[in-house]
Design a protein around this nucleic acid. Sequence first.
RNA 1: GGGCAGAUACCCAAGUGGUCAACGGGGGCAGACUGUAAAUCUGCUGCUUCGGCUUCGUAGGUUCGAAUCCUGCUCUGCCCA
Length: 289
Amino acid sequence: MGKTGAALQVANQIPCEVVSCDSMQVYRKISIASSKPSAVEQKRVPHHLLDVVSVEEKFDVAAFNKLAAEAIEKILGQKKYPLVVGGSGMYMQVLLDGIFEAGGQDPSLRKKLESLGAEKLYGKLKQVDPDAASKIHANDLRRIVRALEVYETTKTPISTLQKQRSGLLKKYPAVIVGLNRERDELYQRINERVEEMFTEGLVNEVKAIAGSQMSLTAQRIIGVSEVMAYLRGEKSLEEAKELMKMNTRRLAKRQLTWFRKDQRIKWLMLKADDTAKKISQDILKEINL
RNA sequence: GGGCAGAUACCCAAGUGGUCAACGGGGGCAGACUGUAAAUCUGCUGCUUCGGCUUCGUAGGUUCGAAUCCUGCUCUGCCCA
């Protein structure tokens, strides 16, 4: 979409530091695949929440939220504006609106639950937390397990806990700007971006982490499985590229679906020939400092 | 030139006389989303003024009725020359 470039330009015009709100840019050694700003750009404008964990470490929204909130406080302490930039919908939501505290994970409990099968679990959830059950689809194993996990470990329905949230918006005023473009144009940019990743050395980047025991989340980085399949000889380079393009287009689509429903967002419809500078000026107009 | 197989919706593919606008998968679009979130899940996907209308290579034919049977033609693949 052009978030990074626009953010860098915003930073040229007001004193601010960037807080990345991206579930994949947190990983070290994943720079090309996650489209991190370059080293030079990072040097010019301080960035937070980049390279905070290895691909082997477990990381999730709660961990992100804690670090991001700290970074924001720090930036405010320096009398600068925190510019939160990113497309990870849930991370953004948690940061803005909060997350309930008592909700850790229990891998062994999860395993036990998962082995029971969706049907049984959903029946159980309906008894234990009908509110949550009514919102979760019977086939959505992931969420059913999570809801039951929370219930088992806290003895409180997740639907009750979910009401206990308090995020940044409760403490600070914020302007939320959404960037969008015509679909055709967006997809074309995505296709080009993927091609660039390969010329920048994506294959080597993936090779470098190929031996690690990647966390569940890190395994999902677009580019990793596709390039690995290529390295194993299961896919041609062309096939790997096309797959990545498709997966990225879908990601972009889901991101749009996520953010579209948020009434607080001020949307900017970008045009193909808009420069990062122009976009940054439009953003600043919305922020209205 | 001869023989055989095939042509189905954006793509792949099932269907072999009525219950077929046509199974399934892919892709696309839309939606949900509070600890894997670049994840997970859901719905729709010929046109429609919702009464209908037009589809299964193409032109005819058989039949009350055809994507399904018959004939010609076109194209594709394989085999023989």
